[in-house]
């Protein structure tokens, strides 16, 4: 059995909307092993994104603990959380979220620059990553010169730049046609197989689901099935 990379214990998250408490997560327990592709499904508003944000260190649970790579990330301060996001996690968003004024190559370079990597080194690594997602010939294009599928591939290259323990993706194929979605999932599959890369993917897309090694369904803030 490969090692446990994410362990969430009794996670609860309550949002306050004015005077009303809105529960988003309710006693969620979750374990993800290294090298898995975990799919998280559920209707909208069920707490999928909240769970993903907590795992990714973007949000904090109201109650409960979560260990990633053995570190309790709920105990980290803001600065350490930023560091955690930089080194341990890669994010892929539904709407790609590339920086529009930077080229594909430069977008992939951002995490490396934030790490303080020298220019030559980060350029070479970013180019390798683009090659891996099949976009080396598009390196100098700006996001608005790329198709949705291409942008999402740049986004995954960016997510992988710092060699993270896990890649978190929030509906990564939600805005892609099925051909692009399949291409994207093929990359996920390849990375997973070749590098033993762990993915946690929030999705509705059956194309994604069929590639996952494990599926969780969340309803009303609770994990229903494993």
């Amino acid at each position: 059995m490969s090692k446990l990379i994410v362990r969430a214990i009794d996670l609860s998250k309550v949002y306050r909307r004015g005077k009303v408490n809105v529960p988003a997560l309710n006693n969620v327990n979750l374990q993800v092993s290294s090298g898995e592709i975990v799919g998280i499904m559920g209707p909208s508003g069920s707490g999928k994104t909240t769970l993903l944000n907590i795992i990714g260190g973007l949000d904090k649970p109201t109650l409960g603990k979560i260990f990633v790579d053995g570190v309790d990330i709920t105990s980290l301060n803001e600065k350490d959380l930023a560091d955690y996001r930089l080194k341990k996690v890669g994010f892929v968003f539904q709407f790609y979220n590339l920086i529009p004024i930077l080229t594909a190559l430069e977008n992939v370079e951002i995490p490396l620059a934030l790490m303080g990597a020298p220019k030559d080194e980060r350029r070479e690594r970013a180019l390798n990553l683009l090659r891996m997602v099949g976009l080396e010939n598009r390196a100098d294009h700006k996001p608005d010169e790329l198709s949705g599928g291409e942008q999402q591939r740049v986004a995954i290259a960016r997510a992988l730049a710092n060699n993270p323990s896990i890649v978190l993706a929030d509906e990564p194929t939600g805005d892609l046609d099925s051909k692009s979605a399949m291409a994207f999932m093929k990359i996920v599959r390849d990375l997973n197989r070749r590098n033993d890369q762990t993915f946690i993917i929030v999705t509705h897309d059956p194309l994604v689901v069929e590639q996952c090694t494990k599926i969780y369904t969340i309803r009303d803030g609770r994990i229903e099935s494993a």
Partner: peptide, 16 residues
């Protein structure tokens, strides 16, 4: 704002 959110999500610190 969204760009700032993205930068923070991929690890930019406040001072960045």
């Amino acid at each position: 704002t969204r760009e700032i959110g993205v930068l923070k999500a991929i690890g930019a610190k406040n001072h960045d």
